[in-house]
Simulated assay, not measured.
Amino acid sequence: MKMKPLGRTGVMVSDLCLGTMTFGTQTSETGGHRQMDMALAAGINFVDAAEMYPVNPISKETVGRTEEILGNWNASNAARRGDYVLATKHSGAGFSHARDGAPISGQTIPQAIEGSLRRLQTDYIDLYQFHWPNRGSYMFRQNWDYDPSGGDRDEVVANMQECLEALQAQVEKGNIRAFGLSNESAWGTAQWVRLADETGAPRVASVQNEYSMLCRHFDTDMAELSAHEDVGLLAFSPLAAGFLTGKYQGGSVPEGSRMSLVPEMGGRKSDRVFDAVAAYLEIADKHGLDPVHMALSWCRSRPFMTSAIFGATDEAQLQRILDGKDLELSQDVLKEINLAHRAHPMPY
């Protein structure tokens, strides 16, 4: 398993990260605990969660359950807490199940962190991330009509400064060790970096955005920022919510899969997606590769990648992913993937 630096924190993380957003809905507590054991045994030392998880579906009754499941594992494996890097996230504006949908602020940060610490049954969170910016995001298919012109710049920057001060207080208490973003833009990330460099507040270590062969928004401005500011990508949905496995081709909807629960796949589903997936499946078949292994290996090979966050509903899916953890793609395969991307540049 390759290890990568987490920003400038000095922490090293595996370039595969166990995502846990199904723990508590599609994945039982027992199954989640087995996945933790399997992942750590395979050399993965990075686990990602969020206070709003699980998903598929999100409901008031299950919010926080993922952290509780991880917390029960921590309680039963107290000696192993230092063996892995634990990341979780603060929900913000628009998420009514937490703090009545209040935006992220100096007031909500300590409340959210205390709640996560309690559910996770741990004394500290290694990487604390803001799930999305208060001002909105072009992620989740909002790029098609994204309008960044609203809002007052001075107010946005003042809120950032307030949040950094609150994060610094949490670092000093020992509650968190590093700070990360999620669903952020180049401008937003640059502002967080600038303010931290000017004030000595916690510096952004990573940004968790969607990234896969079907979703490559990170390739331009964010890639440049990452290279020069040491803010690596934590890629969520590197298998494009399961599309790149090929399991949804030909109209197939496996029982218990995400598509069986969320038919439109959060706006990802279209004829263009299936055409693009077919092109990548053809490359994998031509070179005798498992498409899951190919998709994850390609993602991990990107120059700005810190870690690819995958999710597995069950242990069989996790084992399939682990079986490809050492794959490195040939230049021929990488070239063909680039050609397929040019032919299918923005399938969703």
Results as ranks from 00 to 15, higher is better:
residue 69 I to V: 09
residue 8 R to C: 10
residue 273 V to I: 14
residue 181 L to W: 00
residue 337 I to H: 08
residue 240 A to Y: 14
residue 176 I to E: 00
residue 341 H to I: 15
residue 34 R to G: 10
residue 172 E to Y: 14
residue 99 R to N: 12
residue 183 N to F: 05
residue 78 A to R: 15
residue 25 T to P: 06
residue 50 A to T: 07
residue 148 P to Q: 15
residue 115 G to S: 08
residue 256 G to A: 08
residue 277 V to P: 02
residue 314 D to S: 03
residue 251 G to C: 10
residue 282 E to C: 14
residue 144 W to P: 04
residue 254 P to V: 03
residue 243 F to T: 02
residue 339 L to T: 11
residue 325 K to F: 06
residue 20 T to Q: 08
residue 203 R to H: 10
residue 243 F to N: 02
residue 77 N to G: 10
residue 184 E to H: 13
residue 43 G to R: 01
residue 35 Q to N: 12
residue 223 A to Q: 01
residue 111 Q to I: 11
residue 336 E to V: 04
residue 97 H to C: 04
residue 44 I to A: 10
residue 70 L to A: 06
residue 326 D to L: 10
residue 41 A to S: 13
residue 226 S to Y: 05
residue 222 M to V: 11
residue 202 P to K: 03
residue 345 P to A: 11
residue 283 I to R: 02
residue 149 S to L: 13
residue 278 A to Y: 04
residue 176 I to S: 02
residue 206 S to D: 05
residue 153 R to Y: 15
residue 211 Y to H: 09
residue 343 A to C: 12
residue 315 E to D: 15
residue 104 I to R: 01
residue 147 D to S: 07
residue 47 V to A: 09
residue 240 A to K: 12
residue 61 E to P: 06
residue 219 D to N: 10
residue 299 C to K: 04
residue 120 L to V: 09
residue 219 D to P: 02
residue 71 G to P: 01
residue 171 V to H: 07
residue 67 E to I: 11
residue 223 A to H: 00
residue 74 N to Y: 07
residue 19 G to Y: 02
residue 149 S to V: 07
residue 155 E to H: 06
residue 130 F to D: 04
residue 25 T to N: 09
residue 163 C to A: 11
